[in-house]
Design a protein around this nucleic acid. Structure first.
Length: 602
RNA sequence: GGUCCCAUAGCUCAGCAGGAUAGAGCGCAGGAUUCCUAAUCCUGAGGCCGAUGGUUCGAAUCCAUCUGGGAUCACCA
């Protein structure tokens, strides 16, 4: 993950009061302050490296800290000895039932049953807002993703960025950022002219002309047929009699409008919804006022000059000419090469528009700007970072998230795609075939820096192979338990019932394990949001579902552990509270990933 | 050639700002259903964390070099 403008050391304090690890981080640091040798050398030691986390193995305890190992050296003692002292201090905490020192100096803390019951109780009370954090401090964040060219339907390659960007935005929102989901429409430039010409051909077709084969260089896809028909219906043969420079803007507008309509439908099918659609054309409007202003701004700050670029390395393009042009001195702000702002025909480069676009975002007051791009745009990262530095004077926080490419397979065979021939797999086809939830979760069930093989056969035929169903099934099971409870106790009103009243009955170690897993949720949310890695949430949900399924299954062999106890109303209610907590976290997480939390699956 | 990403079990991947005996799914071998949905669970086999150096109490994790794979490389968008 690029971290160009983040200092690694300023780690925001964890703000969720429901994050018990954050809670214990404070308690442990307080305990440290009471220790004599710490007090003696207080000014020399830094608690920054002290971490508090769940132990690798639950048998070690509930909370573990490396405090002794990190602090032993600056305090001039050895880790084990220091650990013993810290452990003694921690034993004073009434919520701590056991403290042990293990391995090289780990301090393992086991929490009292009462503490866990309180945790569970607060989870139930918080419901779907459990895990919500104020870590983002309401900072304005702009997540730009998809931004597919409006020249045709979205293809499967757009899928990953769409899902990752959308989930990340949801995640950051949940973690306390003020998030805007944004789509940059590349509706200026030569590919739009090509689009308009292609649509014009379809228009002539709609008027009854035989157009034959679509000429090389135009878009051949059928999806432009409706555009031609719409133009014919609206304008009759009038456009046909106009010179190109007259029909061109009309056809452009109509084409872009209809293509964006199509793209929005595709996005909707994937459950992706943007707040802002930002048009590149607006930057070029009024004599490219925005772009000129942006360039003026850069010029004023001394980042623009006229000069020549060295010829490209490797194979020299046919039409390469060594000429003077207007350049952005991006090398001074971290780029490998200075970048042209004005083309040989006098118009602005795509990059120039991007400078203006960034400036616009910056002026709109975003603290953080995130670009979700495909790996094929990797070469663009340094350029964007350079823009951010130059425009904001180093103040803007810009992160580029690169999604590696998705390789499509069908029964183990790679699916060939050719954009030119119009022979490509559309996003819609994939969603229709394998389902929205399966697609989304699949895209999230991988680190975004890792390439992804997407096999239709694997995702559809063996649908249970897709982790989303496993997680959804866990949620459906929770609902099923409620249905079951209603059968056992027909008068039970599970909606208005206080599920926390009998919480003291939740004490079995198996149940506590489940509560402990649930208690990790706020921490996962904060860590995933901060690292901007939504896949962590997907893995957590799978993990939680696994714990739940396992616990559920214990009830088969050990009836005492079943959630619904016909002969014990109070215990059933208490356990329904636990089930409610599981269901809430599952639903909350699934919602962030943009997938459904079904009540039943059959 | 430059830049960026990746390399962990037979396969697909996690590994949480360096920590304890490196995990999961699939596949493989075996087992569980008169019982809250078996779309589930349990047990087992399976690893030189690509290679070599370095940093330190401690490295799959950080640094350097190398090997192998992917992306990208003026005026396109």
């Amino acid at each position: 993950m690029p971290t160009a403008f983040k200092t690694q050391t300023d780690r925001p304090a964890r703000k969720s009061d429901m994050n018990l690890f954050a809670d214990f981080e404070i308690r442990i640091k307080n305990a440290l302050e009471t220790i004599d040798i710490v007090k003696e050398k207080r000014s020399e030691v830094d608690f920054g490296r002290v971490t508090v986390e769940p132990p690798r193995d639950q048998s070690h305890g509930d909370v573990a800290t490396n405090a002794a190992m990190v602090l032993a050296k600056p305090l001039g003692t050895n880790p084990r000895a220091l650990a013993d002292v810290i452990a003694a201090a921690l034993r004073n905490d009434p919520d701590v039932s056991e403290v042990s020192v293990a391995g090289p100096g780990f301090i393992n803390i086991r929490l009292s049953t009462g503490y866990w019951q309180n945790v569970l109780s607060s989870m139930i009370k918080a419901g779907l807002s459990y895990g919500r954090s104020t870590m983002g401090e309401g900072k304005k964040a702009n997540v730009e993703y998809v931004s597919a060219n409006p020249t045709g339907p979205m293809h499967v390659g757009h899928c990953r960025g769409a899902v990752v960007g959308d989930a990340l935005a949801n995640l950051m929102d949940f973690a306390g950022y003020d998030v805007t989901k944004e789509y940059y429409i590349n509706d200026a430039g030569s590919q739009i002219e090509v689009l308009a010409r292609s649509a014009f051909l379809r228009y002539r077709e709609a008027l009854g002309e035989t157009i034959g084969q679509i000429p090389e260089g135009l878009y051949p896809g059928d999806y432009l047929v409706p555009v031609g028909e719409a133009l014919a219906a609206e304008y009759g043969s009038r456009l046909h009699n106009m010179p190109e420079d007259e029909w061109m803007p009309i056809v452009k507008d109509k084409s872009i409008e209809m293509m964006m309509g199509m793209i929005r439908e595709d996005l909707d099918a994937l459950n992706v919804h943007h707040d802002v659609f930002y048009s590149e054309r607006t930057l070029h409007a009024n004599g490219a006022q925005s772009i000129r202003q942006a360039i003026n701004d850069l010029t004023f700050k001394g980042h623009v000059y006229k000069g020549t670029l060295p010829p490209p390395k490797g194979q020299l393009p046919e039409d390469w000419e060594d000429r003077e042009q207007t350049l952005f001195r991006s090398t001074e702000v971290g780029d490998d090469m200075d970048r042209p702002l004005i083309k040989s025909d006098g118009s602005y480069t795509y990059f120039a528009a991007d400078v203006a676009y960034f400036k616009d975002k910056y002026d709109r007051g975003y603290d953080e700007m995130i670009y979700v791009l495909g790996a094929d745009h990797g070469g663009y990262v340094k350029r964007l970072e350079a823009v951010a530095r130059a425009v904001s004077g180093g103040k803007a926080k810009l992160t580029v998230l690169l999604c590696q490419l998705v390789k499509l397979f069908r029964n183990g065979e790679p699916v060939k795609m050719s954009k030119r021939s119009g022979n490509f797999v559309t996003l819609r086809e994939v969603v229709d075939e394998v389902g929205r939830d399966a697609v989304r979760f699949m895209m999230l069930y991988r680190k975004n820096s890792e390439p992804l093989d997407f096999d239709f056969a694997k995702v559809t035929e063996q649908s249970s192979d897709n982790p989303v169903f496993y997680v959804q099934y866990a949620h459906a099971r929770c609902a099923s338990i409620y249905r079951q409870a209603k059968e056992a106790f027909p008068d039970l009103d599970t909606d208005s019932l206080d599920l926390t009243a009998g919480i003291a009955r939740i004490s079995d170690p198996n149940e506590m394990q489940l509560v402990a897993k649930l208690a990790e949720y706020p921490r996962i949310i904060e860590a995933a949001a901060q690292a901007q890695e939504p896949h962590r949430l997907a893995f957590y949900l799978y993990d939680l579902a696994r714990f739940f399924h396992a616990h559920y299954d214990k009830g088969r062999k050990t009836p005492e552990l079943r959630f619904v106890k016909d002969n014990d109303r109070e215990l059933t209610i208490a356990r329904l509270g636990l089930v409610r907590a599981v269901a809430s976290v599952l639903k909350s997480g699934l919602t962030i990933t943009g997938t459904a939390a079904p009540e039943e699956m059959r």
